[in-house]
Computed example of a mutant assay.
Amino acid sequence: MTTGAQTPTPLDTRPRRSRLRTFLPLGLAVWLVLEIWLLTVVAGAAGGFTVFLLLLAGFLLGSVVIKRAGRRAFRNLNEALQRGTPPSSGGGSGLMMLGGLLLMIPGPVSDGLGLLLLLPPVQKAVGRYTERTVDRKLRAAGPGSLGDAFQQARMHRPDGKVVQGEVISRDERGEGRQDRRPPLTQ
């Protein structure tokens, strides 16, 4: 004898997987196969030693780019701290580091993407797109999410007081236990 109401199964209560989590492994596998296939095509046309030299040159160029971008980011941070102003977005240093990392990854496709990210117009376009996307996602985020956490981090008490507290975790029975970590501020 069954009634019209069914109890939900664990599969019904799970949240749906995002498209990124669904297609990212497939995209990485396709990218890996494409990189290997292109390396074999280049090796067949120019020889294995040429492929080795190309991979070595990409690795060395990528490491130089990452080192230079890191120095620039550190210098910008130092200058901002000396001026007493908040640091800027880095002036494309993050995208330069990403371009250097892509150059260091073996393969012609990643090298091409890395070289594209080193071009200033491409850096500006990708930087603007990324900034707009992050802003839109943070505005669309509901309470209790990452966007809310950024808002909470900016809240200050009007009198400037710091309220010290301790973390109390509740176990399944509802009994509290104190965490033995020291407070964040003195």
Rank of each mutant, 00 (worst) to 15 (best):
Y129H: 08
V134E: 05
E166R: 09
L138K: 05
D171E: 06
G165I: 00
Q178M: 10
A125H: 07
E131K: 07
G160L: 13
Q178I: 11
D148G: 12
A140I: 00
R154F: 15
R154G: 13
I168L: 15
E131Q: 05
G127P: 01
Q152P: 01
K161D: 08
R139A: 14
T133E: 00
G127A: 04
T133L: 05
E172G: 02
S145R: 14
G165T: 06
K124L: 10
G174Y: 05
R170Q: 03
D135Y: 01
Q164V: 00
M155S: 10
G142P: 02
Q178N: 12
Y129E: 09
S145P: 04
R154S: 15
V134G: 11
R136E: 05
A149Y: 14
G165V: 02
P143C: 04
E131Y: 08
T130R: 06
G160Y: 11
G144D: 04
V134P: 01
D135N: 01
R132G: 10
A125W: 06
V163F: 12
L146W: 13
R157A: 13
I168Q: 14
R139T: 01
A140S: 09
E175F: 13
R132M: 09
E166C: 08
D171S: 11
P143A: 10
P158N: 02
L146R: 11
D135V: 00
R173A: 15
E166Q: 11
T130E: 07
A149S: 15
E172T: 00
T130H: 09
P143Q: 08
R173P: 00
T130W: 05
P158R: 11
Q164K: 06
G144H: 14
A149E: 14
D148W: 15
E172W: 03
V162N: 07
Q151M: 07
I168C: 08
K161P: 00
R132W: 10
E131F: 03
K124H: 02
V167A: 15
A153E: 08
R132T: 07
R136P: 03
P158M: 06
R157S: 08
V134Q: 07
R139K: 04
G142L: 05
R139I: 00
K137Y: 06
Q178W: 15
V162T: 06
G176W: 12
K124Y: 01
D135Q: 05
Q151A: 15
Q152L: 13
G127S: 06
D159G: 10
V167T: 15
R132A: 10
A153H: 12
F150W: 15
Q152F: 01
L138M: 12
G165L: 05
T133Q: 10
G144C: 13
G127V: 00
K137E: 06
T130Q: 07
G176Q: 08
R139G: 09
R136Y: 07
Q152E: 14
H156E: 02
A140K: 08
R170C: 07
T130N: 05
D159C: 04
G144Q: 12
R132I: 00
A153D: 12
